[in-house]
């Protein structure tokens, strides 16, 4: 069935196995994060604390041989704390540039919705342009660069909802849930013996991320599949269940993620199945439910699943 690509599937599998060996019981989340990485996007991870989000990013950084930094977003965090700032060095009697934590490969923005909009917006430029402007000079951040932001779905007191413009910058929104019972037993027994927090494993480059991203971009897309992706996105705009549908950026993201999924599966073309599999994580943060639907207690995933049923799948 698979028309395998050159060497990347083996390398991808090695990276996937490496992360899965550290982060137990979250293989679906790991796959989705890898998809976002291959598609060259950023992810927003929603889940309660203590599910191994930091370990995921650390293990991923170790697997790609990249640098990892973490910012804990708090209400008093300033934009300069994210991007960096210029300060006067008394000893040298000149202004020196202090780079912020965004100058890395993988950036974990923990509890991003705890910081006010101004600080959240500081991430916008770097997420979109992959550069930071400090003191009038633009500086490129590391390659590859990926932001993994997290937010807690339960505690909403004292948080600042992410603006739509910023949400749209995240290629995927991943919901991370509790692991299965047998996985939790494994986690408990393994990490009870190790230092608290888990070990991300040795740092070694299992994959050339930039080459994999280029390979992902080269995945073949049939016209009918592209039309299907666009139809799915457009279906969110005419629905009475949604107050606000997804924009064209969602269509682009959907196709890019479908390509990444195909690459992860070792296939050199995408099918409607790849597109459909990525609809929920790509669209769930780009649409806004109609008030009456919210009052009825329906969730975004339920509404999107309902819309999926209304779009005919192609048979090219």
């Amino acid at each position: 069935m698979n028309d395998s690509t050159s060497t990347t599937p083996a390398a991808l599998n090695a990276l996937r196995d490496h992360i899965n060996s550290r982060l137990i019981g979250q293989s679906q989340v790991v796959d989705q994060v890898l998809i976002a990485m291959l598609a060259g996007g950023h992810v927003l991870i929603e889940g309660v604390p203590g599910l191994g989000k930091t370990l995921l990013v650390q293990a991923m950084a170790a697997g790609i041989g990249g640098k990892f930094k973490r910012i804990q977003f708090t209400p008093d965090l300033m934009p300069g704390d994210v991007t960096g700032h210029v300060m006067f060095d008394m000893s040298q009697s000149k202004f020196v540039l202090k780079q912020g934590p965004v100058f890395t490969n993988l950036l974990l923005a923990d509890e991003i919705n705890r910081a006010p909009a101004k600080t959240q917006a500081a991430l916008l430029e770097v997420m979109q342009e992959r550069q930071v402007t400090l003191d009038g000079k633009s500086m490129k951040v590391g390659k590859p660069f990926m932001v993994l932001a997290t937010q807690n779905p339960i505690e909403q007191e004292g948080t600042y909802a992410l603006p739509e413009a910023e949400l749209d910058r995240f290629i995927l929104k991943i919901n991370i849930d509790y692991p299965q019972a047998q996985d939790e037993v494994l986690i408990a027994t393994r990490y009870a013996l190790e230092a608290f927090g888990g070990d991300p494993g040795d740092t070694r480059q299992l994959i050339d991320v930039e080459a994999a991203q280029q390979q992902c971009a080269a995945i073949e897309v049939d016209d009918r599949v592209a039309e299907y992706a666009v139809e799915l996105v457009r279906a969110t705009r005419g629905s009475t269940l949604l107050r606000h549908g997804a924009g064209p950026r969602a269509s682009i993201a959907l196709l890019r993620c479908a390509k990444a999924l195909a690459l992860l599966n070792g296939v050199s073309f995408i099918t409607p199945d790849d597109v459909k599999a990525m609809v929920l994580p790509v669209l769930r943060h780009r649409v806004i439910l109609a008030p009456e639907v919210e009052i009825d207690g329906l969730g975004v995933d339920q509404v999107l699943a309902n819309l999926l049923e209304k779009v005919d799948a192609p048979r090219s």
Partner: peptide, 12 residues
């Protein structure tokens, strides 16, 4: 299905 998908979407 696999053969059909290869021809229809992969053009192989």
């Amino acid at each position: 299905t696999a053969v059909w998908r290869q021809l229809a979407y992969g053009h192989r």
